[in-house]
């Protein structure tokens, strides 16, 4: 479904991503972790071209990403993304946030888009908030709306960029529960997160990155029980140690 081969990216002189090779199959769930500045957010943002790479190949759902705007549009239609800071549209109601792209990108009739959106609000367990503005919701509710907004486009892949990092502790669970449910339904997911409980529960593979490289990639059991590299061991001791 997603294939990155020998992908490199520089910010000026700074080599952010070094020869990244990763394949994500259909229905697979990959958790990406690593210290801050390791390039993990940059990597998943390459997949829907919020960042551009300088060398290597990125293929999503059989379409190769290039400067051709058509390929970018085609991929963005198939890839949903959830951000750390929610990025809901504050001037639109929850319902309008959810139906805007289906109506204007997918060309769905308004009525159908709204029914569709109501269905996804139900799934993220906030059907009663449809007419409110994002500013009137809690952080956890906003992030669930953001997930529903991405799902309304019927994506084949969902990218999560630290979806719980900006949340108060008591709201993390309500967002993770929605993500776990989504994983169980078979969605292809790539999640940048430090929620190791979530990784253990749903991930098929954990990818550990450090200094722009993929250092280790292994199923969660073996990654958590027996990390092969010192860097992964150090990282795990730091985030699990407290």
């Amino acid at each position: 479904m997603i294939e990155l081969s020998r992908v490199n990216k520089w910010y000026g002189e700074f080599h952010v991503l070094k020869d990244i090779d990763i394949k994500v199959g259909k229905g697979e769930k990959v958790v990406v972790c690593g210290p801050s500045g390791s390039g993990k957010s940059t990597m998943i943002r390459l997949i829907n071209r919020l960042e551009t790479h300088q060398s290597g190949r990125i293929v999503v759902d059989g379409i190769e990403l290039s400067d051709d705007l058509k390929s970018v549009d085609a991929i963005r239609r198939e890839v949903g993304m959830v951000f750390q800071s929610f990025n809901l549209f504050p001037h639109l109601t929850v319902m309008e946030n959810l139906t805007l792209a289906p109506i204007w990108v997918r060309k769905m009739p308004k009525r159908a888009a709204e029914e569709h959106a109501a269905h996804f609000l139900e799934r993220v367990r906030i059907p009663e908030q449809a007419d409110k503005y994002p500013g009137q919701l809690s952080g956890g509710q906003q992030q669930r709306v953001a997930i529903a907004r991405a799902l309304c486009m019927r994506p084949k892949v969902m990218l999560f960029d630290e979806p719980t990092s900006a949340l108060d502790p008591e709201m993390i669970k309500e967002v993770l529960d929605v993500m776990i449910e989504l994983a169980r339904e078979g969605m292809t997911m790539v999640c940048v997160t430090h929620e190791m409980g979530f990784a253990k529960t749903v991930a098929d593979r954990v990818v550990f990155m450090d200094q722009g490289e993929i250092v280790e990639a292994a199923p969660p059991d073996s990654f958590f029980e027996a990390p092969k590299t010192d860097r992964a061991r150090l990282f795990l001791s730091q985030i699990l140690g407290h």
Binding site: R76, F83, L88, A150
Partner: peptide, 27 residues
């Protein structure tokens, strides 16, 4: 307007003019 608004609109597949017209300019 924060960069996140542009990114969210782009991630949803909105074209430049739709992003500007529906998301950025109204705010």
């Amino acid at each position: 307007i924060p960069r996140g608004q542009y990114e969210a609109a782009q991630a949803l597949g909105l074209s430049y003019w739709k992003m500007m017209g529906f998301i950025i300019l109204p705010q």
